[in-house]
Amino acid sequence: MTAATDLAERPEPRRKTISSPYIHKLQRRHFLLFDIAPILGTLAAVAFLGVHPLGWTELGLLVGFWLLTGLGVTVGYHRLFTHRTFRTTPAVQAVLAVLGSMAGQGAVISWVALHRRHHEFSDREGDPHSPNLSGGGLVGALRGLAHSHFLWMRRHEYPNVVHYAPDLIRNRALVKVARGYYWWVALGLAVPALVGGLVDLSWQGAVSGLLWGGFVRIFVLEHIVWAINSFLHMFGTRPYESRENSRNGGIFALLTLGESWHNNHHAFPESPSFGLDWYRLDPGFWLIKALEAIGLAWDLKTPSDERRESRRVRPAGA
Score class of each variant (00 low, 15 high):
residue 158 Y to D: 03
residue 106 G to S: 01
residue 197 G to D: 11
residue 32 L to K: 07
residue 22 Y to W: 14
residue 184 W to E: 03
residue 259 E to V: 08
residue 161 V to C: 10
residue 195 V to P: 11
residue 176 K to P: 02
residue 142 L to P: 01
residue 185 V to F: 06
residue 137 G to A: 05
residue 179 R to H: 12
residue 100 G to M: 12
residue 104 G to E: 03
residue 191 V to D: 02
residue 80 L to I: 04
residue 237 T to E: 05
residue 167 D to T: 06
residue 176 K to R: 15
residue 235 F to L: 14
residue 101 S to W: 09
residue 292 E to H: 01
residue 110 S to D: 11
residue 19 S to T: 06
residue 64 G to V: 03
residue 293 A to T: 05
residue 218 I to L: 12
residue 112 V to C: 04
residue 219 F to I: 09
residue 241 E to V: 05
residue 63 V to Y: 02
residue 284 G to F: 08
residue 108 V to H: 09
residue 196 G to S: 10
residue 211 L to N: 02
residue 225 V to P: 00
residue 164 Y to E: 09
residue 226 W to C: 11
residue 198 L to Y: 14
residue 199 V to R: 07
residue 306 E to P: 00
residue 172 R to I: 09
residue 239 P to Q: 02
residue 267 A to N: 05
residue 214 G to T: 07
residue 309 E to A: 10
residue 23 I to D: 03
residue 147 H to L: 08
residue 8 A to E: 15
residue 303 P to V: 08
residue 56 W to H: 08
residue 149 H to G: 13
residue 306 E to D: 15
residue 179 R to K: 14
residue 45 A to W: 04
residue 2 T to F: 07
residue 270 E to R: 15
residue 162 V to P: 00
residue 262 H to D: 00
residue 234 M to I: 13
residue 275 G to A: 00
residue 113 A to T: 02
residue 51 V to D: 04
residue 296 L to F: 06
residue 14 R to N: 08
residue 283 P to A: 10
residue 277 D to E: 14
residue 92 V to M: 12
residue 303 P to R: 00
residue 174 L to Y: 07
residue 138 L to G: 03
residue 163 H to A: 08
residue 248 N to R: 01
residue 183 W to N: 11
residue 73 V to D: 09
residue 157 E to R: 12
residue 132 N to K: 07
residue 293 A to K: 00
residue 157 E to M: 09
residue 265 H to Y: 03
residue 318 A to S: 12
residue 115 H to R: 02
residue 223 H to V: 02
residue 163 H to K: 01
residue 158 Y to G: 03
residue 261 W to L: 02
